[in-house]
Design a protein around this nucleic acid. Structure first.
Lengths: 169, 169
DNA sequence: TATAACATGTAACAAGTTACATGATTTC
DNA sequence: GAAATCATGTAACTTGTTACATGTTATA
């Protein structure tokens, strides 16, 4: 199941768009949800077109470079719903990074270990603060995803606090 | 920063080992921490050898196929500590999957949306139950990493419950 | 007048996975 | 006698990233 394909189709469900704008939107608003880069977006858009999930028509605004506007087809909408159901029905284990370091924490003396975890805690708290300030752009359901990320950040902070408390004793 | 390199060096910090056993250990005990596959492990081991972080000596037990046993060198130990510090000091945003689906949850009618989240909740609860049963093999610091994963699974369950409650109202 | 923004892409590269190759040996 | 385990790897494939190519038009 390709989350990127679902994302692009989902964006096109709301309105027809050209690649540059889609990528721009992702970079500016969805950096926390996906890390898809520009050439990848263009490539997947072309793939979706070849598969008949979207149609492409070129558009020219004034004498600016021509745009390739993508519009989702009925087949694309069906594909979107199928991918959406697939994605929502699978929980997906949170395989988060940073675990390997924790595994070997005991190789540091307890002073350094605590200092490292404290630094990590500070970073997580900073991230939480940053997320609180993210504007509530209720476009699509971004808030739901952001809310989930916030919950996990808070869980990470709480876990670090608890791990630190255990190290103190 | 390559977590896999850190992992292999960390395993070799405890004892010299040959590739097959290392991979076996990872598959059996660390499937939740890393998804590194066999050929990748062999490749990184060879790379570490070329870099002088480990030395390789072949060993033959009876007339079984010969093993390449890897032993960490002083340079390897230094490298391990450097990677460990680097890994521990960076928090790393939990970029978890499944967010894209959530973004488009509103494309399902509320009945189906709730059903999907409930299924997801069931899966997360099942995973939590599974984790409770993981034997406490205090080899290395696996428990610390597992404890963190458990915390995130519980946070995910709590978040899903809350999201469901919001959908009901 | 230089540089950033607009708009689309290609090409080279990096990294990891799957499938396959090899050959002995224990287990069913 | 067949299949699984032991043990190491290679080769082909997949996927995505970075860097580059191209050409126009606002902006500093």
């Amino acid at each position: 199941m390709d989350e990127r394909e679902l994302l692009l189709l989902g964006i096109l469900m709301a309105q027809s768009q050209y690649g540059y704008r889609i990528n721009e939107f992702i970079e500016q608003n969805l950096s926390r949800v996906t890390e898809m880069k520009k050439p990848t977006a263009y490539a997947i858009l072309a793939r979706l077109r070849d598969a008949g999930y979207v149609v492409e028509h070129t558009e020219q605004a004034g004498n600016r470079p021509q745009r390739k506007v993508y519009t989702i087809t009925p087949a694309g909408k069906a594909r979107f719903m199928a991918l959406l159901r697939e994605s929502l029905n699978q929980a997906g284990t949170p395989l988060l990074g940073g675990n390997v370091g924790l595994m070997f924490l005991h190789h540091l003396d307890s002073g350094e270990a605590r200092a490292a975890l404290r630094r990590r805690l500070d970073q997580v708290r900073a991230q939480i603060a940053e997320y609180e300030q993210v504007p509530v752009h209720s476009q699509y359901g971004v808030e739901l995803a952001l809310d989930r990320l916030r919950a996990h950040l808070r869980a990470e902070a709480a876990w670090l606090e608890q791990a630190l408390a255990r190290l103190e004793s």
